[in-house]
């Protein structure tokens, strides 16, 4: 039933085999402008969301059907029921206030509404506040923590910081090796130990960073589901131990969220925030067909609870340069523009 898709991959199949040869090692791509990159990364999202939207915003009167259609689109983008209803209410209010008549104007109003919701989340990460600046990376299994750390280390290094990675995922098989490969690629030292206690590994890393006057420590942790209470306790302990090594640390606790995640992302944020006090988010895998609309759900939640947890970075591709600071305007534009 989904012929267009199948056909496409069949037609282009022979070409891929050729391309594949270069794929194994992520090569740095020619530097396109970052908006372009984000747009490329979000291309599919835009096709889905934007395509539907431009059909919707093609002109004509604003009526109930339009709102219903919009609700469907938002819901299928993982915006979630509460945030969707909030957005639509805001949109309706805006339409009434500004006396908008046709659907062209509605698009502008939607952009502003989305922007209003998302721009408070745009606060870049500043690692200059402390030295060493200790970051702890947390999240559920398979969210992309280790890959994000690789990209982040590269990025911070390019900005002129010395970086140390602590391989705190002592649970999953070969997590340490995975980090080590990332470290070798970018010439970043990785502190690891054969087995054992994540807190101890990270403690050593922080001490080593202080001794060597390294500026940023990125601590990996094992993926955990918030329902595993003993693991949540364990990570609290890791945090306490870091504080012991360097009072006041960790300075940043980054929660890594998979853009494919649905409304459970909200639960994840709640749980990790309750346990640790999350200070920033990273949204990964935005290059898939996932729409990352759950950001809006999160923004809506933080609006209500007055605890703004900014989105520090988004991951829009597999190569090492594809981790970018979150830019609300660009994000919304990429979603709505064709």
């Amino acid at each position: 039933m989904f012929n267009p898709f199948a056909k496409k991959s069949a037609e282009t199949a022979p070409a891929h085999v050729e391309e594949k040869k270069t794929a194994p090692v992520p090569v740095e791509e020619q530097s396109t402008s970052w908006t372009q990159r984000l747009k490329n990364g979000l291309a599919k999202t835009r096709q889905q969301l934007g395509g539907q939207l431009s059909a919707l915003f093609g002109g004509g009167k604003i009526d109930e059907d339009i709102y219903e259609e919009l609700e469907t689109i938002l819901l299928t983008s993982d915006v979630g029921i509460n945030a969707t209803q909030h957005l639509l209410a805001q949109l309706r209010a805006r339409v009434k206030r500004q006396d908008l008549q046709d659907t062209h104007a509605l698009k502008g109003a939607l952009r502003e509404t989305l922007l209003e919701l998302l721009s408070p989340l745009q606060q870049p990460l500043n690692v200059k506040t402390h030295q060493p600046f200790v970051m702890m990376i947390v999240g559920v299994n398979g969210a992309g923590k280790t890959t994000t750390i690789g990209k982040l280390a590269k990025r911070l290094q390019a900005e002129g910081n010395s970086v140390l990675i602590a391989a705190g995922d002592t649970f999953r098989a070969a997590a340490r090796e995975q980090l080590q490969v990332w470290g070798d690629r970018n010439d970043v030292h990785v502190v690891a130990s054969e087995s054992g206690d994540p807190a101890a590994v990270i403690y050593d890393a922080v001490n080593s960073a202080m001794a060597k006057k390294i500026e940023v420590v990125i601590a990996d942790t094992a993926g955990r589901l918030p329902t595993q209470l003993h693991l949540m306790d364990e990570i609290k302990k890791v945090q306490r131990v870091i504080d012991k090594a360097l009072p006041g640390a960790p300075h940043e606790i980054l929660l890594v969220l998979d853009a494919n995640t649905g409304q459970n992302a909200v639960n994840q944020l709640k749980a990790f925030h309750d346990a640790l006090g999350v200070t920033g988010l990273v949204l990964t895998k935005l290059d898939g067909t996932a729409k990352g609309g759950v950001i809006a759900a999160i923004a809506h939640l933080s609006q209500q609870s007055a605890r703004q947890i900014p989105v520090r970075f988004i991951g829009v591709g597999e190569s090492i340069d594809d981790l970018r600071p979150f830019d609300a305007a660009a994000f919304v534009d990429a979603l709505l523009d064709d």
Binding site: F2, F5, A6, S9, Q48, L75, T76, S77, D78, V140, G142, D258, N260, T261, G262, Q263, N264, A265, Q268, G288, T289, A290, K291, G293, V294
Partner: peptide, 19 residues
């Protein structure tokens, strides 16, 4: 497939199912 996947799960599943 990850149980935490959102609305996109259907698109992914569809695409894999076709290939």
């Amino acid at each position: 497939v990850d149980a935490m996947q959102g609305q996109d799960a259907v698109n992914t599943a569809k695409a894999f199912g076709e290939t």
